[in-house]
Amino acid sequence: MKFVKRISYFFVVPVFFLGLGIYLGVWGIHFFYPGLWYDMNDTAKPPYVVDETVTDEEDNSPPASVAVASSGETLCADTEYVLEETDILRGTSVETSWKIPHKYIGMDRENFLETMDLYAEHPPLSEIERGFVGLEVLSFSRERVVVRMDYRYVQPSESYYLAVTDHEVVVYLEDRTTVYINTGIALEDLPETLQLQIMDMLFVPDEETLYDFLETYSS
């Protein structure tokens, strides 16, 4: 029996001291090196979380708002071109939607407005004949452009009169009060004899004679 007890003590005592040593070792690391202890127990945190944050901060791509603003300022082939034609005498309006004309593709707002201003200052003869008096750009974006064109539609008469307003030739209907066309022709650009006749209101017998005059002296 005494032999058995000696054998038990032989195994139990070393195991006890081994466990005590392991405990004291772990306690010492925790007490003297707390940072190392937290690092050993923090392995569950994904290491790429910090890397993702750095990647976002170092991303050199432009913000989304900048990209949207840039694309919205330039017309493209998909831009809708809405033309609103207004009869200022009757107060009526007709709206039509078209594909953007090729000559406007690539223009930003400033370029487009300058082009429209130039058109309003020097409209084609065909527009003058329709009674064109001006235009306004109502909205501008990459998706949709709206332009209002104002007309003073009048029924042509059998005869006309050429007169002067602000040093420019104006065509009146036979009532001598209704303006038919603002020609944009400067009086000083005409021959002197013709200037005198227009200053006295030159009678034009028919439409053909009127168009001959406009084609001859319009720039």
Rank of each mutant, 00 (worst) to 15 (best):
F3A: 11
V4R: 04
V4Q: 05
R6C: 09
Y9Q: 13
F10W: 03
F10D: 02
V12K: 01
V13W: 05
V13K: 01
V13N: 00
F16Q: 01
L18C: 15
G19Y: 06
L20V: 11
G21D: 02
I22T: 06
I22W: 10
Y23R: 04
L24D: 07
L24N: 01
V26R: 10
W27R: 04
F32M: 08
P34R: 03
G35Y: 13
L36T: 11
Y38V: 06
Y38T: 08
D39L: 11
D39M: 06
N41H: 01
D42H: 04
D42N: 03
T43V: 12
Y48L: 10
Y48G: 06
V49G: 00
V49K: 09
D51N: 00
T53F: 15
D56H: 07
D56V: 14
E57N: 08
E57I: 15
E58C: 06
P62F: 14
S65T: 13
A67K: 12
V68K: 10
A69M: 09
S71K: 11
E73P: 05
E73S: 09
C76Q: 15
A77P: 08
A77C: 11
A77G: 05
T79I: 15
E85D: 06
D87Q: 02
S93Q: 02
V94S: 08
E95K: 10
T96S: 04
S97A: 12
S97Q: 09
K99H: 06
K99E: 12
P101N: 08
H102V: 14
H102Q: 14
K103G: 12
Y104V: 14
Y104E: 05
Y104R: 13
I105W: 00
R109M: 08
R109I: 05
E110H: 07
N111Y: 10
F112S: 02
F112C: 08
L113S: 11
T115Q: 06
T115K: 06
M116G: 04
D117G: 04
L118K: 09
Y119C: 02
A120T: 07
A120L: 08
A120C: 07
E121S: 12
E121G: 09
H122I: 14
H122Q: 05
P124K: 02
L125Y: 06
L125N: 05
E127F: 10
I128E: 08
E129R: 02
V133E: 14
E136R: 03
E136C: 13
V137N: 01
L138W: 09
R142I: 09
R144F: 11
V145Q: 00
V145A: 02
V146R: 01
R148T: 15
P156T: 05
P156K: 09
E158S: 13
A163K: 01
V164I: 07
T165V: 12
D166V: 05
D166L: 10
E168W: 04
V169P: 00
V171C: 07
L173P: 00
E174Y: 04
R176I: 01
R176D: 00
T177P: 00
T178K: 01
V179P: 00
N182W: 15
N182S: 10
T183V: 10
G184F: 12
I185W: 02
A186Y: 09
E192D: 13
E192A: 14
T193K: 15
L196M: 11
I198M: 02
D200A: 14
D200L: 13
M201P: 01
V204A: 05
D206N: 10
D206I: 07
E207G: 03
E208D: 07
T209L: 01
Y211N: 14
F213I: 15
T216P: 07
T216R: 12
T216L: 12
S219G: 14
S219A: 07
